[in-house]
Each structure stands twice: as structure tokens, then as C-alpha cells.
Simulated assay, not measured.
Amino acid sequence: MKKIYGSAADALDGVLHDGMMIAAGGFGLCGIPELLLQAIKDAGTKDLIFASNNAGVDDFGIGILLQSRQVKKMISSYVGENAEFMRQYLSGELELEFNPQGTLAERMRAGGCGIPGFYTKTGVGTVIADGKEHKDFPTGPDGAAETYILEEGIFADLSIVKAWKADATGNLVFRKTARNFNPPAAMCGKICIAEVEEIVPTGSLDPDGIHLPGIYVTRLIEGAHEKRIEQRTTRAA
């Protein structure tokens, strides 16, 4: 199966459609699929639902799709660092489904493992639990009942992720903290497209060092990345 494509636009050809759900890897600006996000903007696909920890910043990452009004709903943990994200949410222009970060990561992982739902204590007694099934389990001291809420796995139409290295079969290696949400995001899409800094010969990656097996990856592109610094902190010389 051919997995390597010449550009982000080529890799997305025939995949995008209005109203689709996209799971995107990354945390802030760390490990985001910046080339694929730009190609989605250029394609003009609209009414998108994004499952992503946050939305980058105003002019980078998913933020560029918010600026062009191509996003209908965000399934996220964090609104900060993006003034347009906050403005659209507070003005009612953008739907937002808040998720605790661990819950969001597990919802993606669950979808990738074919698990439609799971129970968690996170969010019990808060607005996160509103409208969700509650169930007691004997997990407290001496078997005392504790309340859990049901969270649903995320099954996205498309996953877009950014990795450090890949081989031609799609095995991925992520660079340090850039691993973040990328593996669970990659797992939960019907189609997964990965952009990487380098594609190496098949067999050259240490099997024990592979972070995501190629079975999850449908298409690959190699490219140069800007990799902006989200919060630049310096000191006087």
C-alpha cells in the first residue's frame, strides 16, 4: 500500500468533506500538524468539528481555521492563548465541548481501541457531568460505592498528527514532549495522515523505539516545519 504522498494537499485529496470530525495531535504549538492544518485551510472545508487539546494561537495551528470560520465545534481542554477562540466561544459563534485533559486523551485512545465508552470519576459533581450517565461502583474504602460518569470514545473521520520520524510503512517516532496527544489522536481516526520531519528506510527504526505502529497510519508526508515557540521567555544578558 502506498503511504507516502508528495504534499499535504495530495495526502488530503479525496478525504476532506464539510462537517467532518478531525482529531488533531499536539499541545499548544508543540507537535502540531501545521502543514496539514494549512492545507485544510487552503481547501476551504467548512463546518469542521475538531477534537484537540486546544486550538493553537490566533495565527498558527487550528487558530488559522478559526480565523477563516471553518470550525463549527471544538472538543477541547483549554481555551487560553487564543483570543479568537475565546471570542467566538463567548459570543456563541463556536460550539465548545470542554473535556478534562486526561478524559480527552482517553476518549481518543478508547476510540482507537474500539471502546465506545468508559466510566471515570473525573468531573463528577461538576458541569462536566451534566447530562451524562452516572453509575456507582464499589471502589471506595471497604467496598463503599463511588460515583462515576460515562464518557464516550471519540471516533473521528480523520486524524492528523505530527511526528519526528517515520518509515515507509508508517511506523512513527515522536520527539520528546511532542508525543503529547499525537498517539491517541492518531489511533481514533478512520483515516490517519501523519506529517514527519524525516522518512527513513523501512527496517532502520529500532522496533523498541517505535511509539505508534504503522497499522494506524494511512498516509504520510515529509516536510519542513516552522515549529514556533508559543511562550518565549528570555532574561537580560
Rank of each mutant, 00 (worst) to 15 (best):
I32E: 04
G56C: 05
L65F: 03
A224G: 04
Y89N: 07
I229C: 11
T103S: 11
I221A: 06
A178T: 05
Q70D: 04
G92N: 05
M86I: 14
A11T: 08
M20H: 07
E230Q: 15
L66M: 11
F155M: 06
Q101S: 10
A163V: 04
I154T: 14
I154W: 00
I199F: 00
F174D: 05
M187K: 14
G6F: 01
W164A: 08
E197W: 00
Q231H: 15
E230G: 10
R109Y: 03
P184D: 11
L12S: 08
M86V: 13
A55G: 08
A237G: 05
I154L: 09
G14K: 12
Q101Y: 02
M86K: 15
F98I: 12
G31A: 06
G26P: 02
L66D: 04
G19N: 12
I40S: 02
L220W: 02
H17G: 10
V196N: 04
K46R: 14
G140Q: 07
A194K: 11
Q70L: 10
F50W: 03
G140P: 12
T45E: 04
R109V: 02
E84F: 03
F155I: 05
D13K: 15
S91T: 10
L16P: 02
G31H: 00
G209P: 01
L16W: 00
A39G: 10
Y216T: 05
V71P: 13
I149M: 15
L29Q: 03
E81H: 03
N54W: 03
C192T: 15
A9N: 04
F60V: 07
C30W: 02
A156I: 13
P100I: 06
T177I: 15
K41H: 05
P213S: 15
H211F: 00
S159F: 14
G111R: 08
I221V: 14
P141Y: 07
E195T: 09
T147Q: 15
Q88R: 13
S91V: 01
L220M: 08
G26T: 06
I193F: 09
S77F: 12
L104Q: 06
A110T: 04
I193C: 09
G153S: 09
A178S: 12
I40M: 14
F60D: 06
R232T: 07
A166S: 15
K2W: 01
L37H: 00
Y89Q: 12
